[in-house]
Amino acid sequence: MGDERKASGSLFIPDAPYFVGLFLCHGDDRLNHPYLGSYFKKGGRYVCADRPGIGEMVTTRFDLLNAYRSYFDKEKDDDPGISGIALALDTKKAGNNGQSSAFINEIRFYN
């Protein structure tokens, strides 16, 4: 979000703007908790959005501006624009030799 690049914490990983990565919970993950990753400690948070059952459809509503203000902008005076969107699947812990399927039906941004 925005265009100010924050350090990744590694010489081998490019710096990036603030970001919030949503993921589906597994194990003991807490819903809506902003986790820190191995990198991007100053500018990135990973948030468990839902804990669906196998084959269950998920609809996620997430207030990105309030999350940004809570995680990064303690003065609550900055409203950066969305400067990118990325989608990724990680199946390395999935059963059946990592075979998995998923689909995205719709993405909406509300102002």
Rank of each mutant, 00 (worst) to 15 (best):
P14W: 00
P14Q: 00
D15M: 01
D15F: 03
P17A: 04
Y18P: 03
F19A: 04
G21K: 14
L22N: 02
F23G: 08
F23V: 01
F23S: 06
C25M: 08
C25L: 08
D28Y: 14
D29Y: 07
D29M: 08
D29E: 09
D29S: 10
D29V: 09
L31I: 15
L31M: 14
N32S: 13
N32V: 07
N32F: 13
H33I: 05
P34I: 03
Y35Q: 10
Y35R: 10
L36D: 15
L36A: 14
L36I: 02
G37T: 04
G37E: 05
G37C: 05
S38V: 08
Y39L: 11
Y39F: 15
F40A: 04
F40D: 09
F40V: 06
F40T: 07
K41G: 09
K42A: 12
K42W: 11
G43S: 01
G43Y: 00
G44V: 00
G44N: 03
R45F: 01
V47K: 10
V47S: 09
V47I: 12
V47N: 09
C48I: 01
R51K: 08
R51W: 10
P52S: 04
G53Q: 14
I54A: 13
G55I: 02
E56A: 07
E56L: 07
M57G: 08
M57L: 12
V58S: 14
T59Y: 10
T60I: 15
T60F: 11
R61G: 10
R61D: 14
R61E: 15
F62D: 07
F62H: 06
F62T: 06
D63Y: 11
D63K: 08
D63N: 13
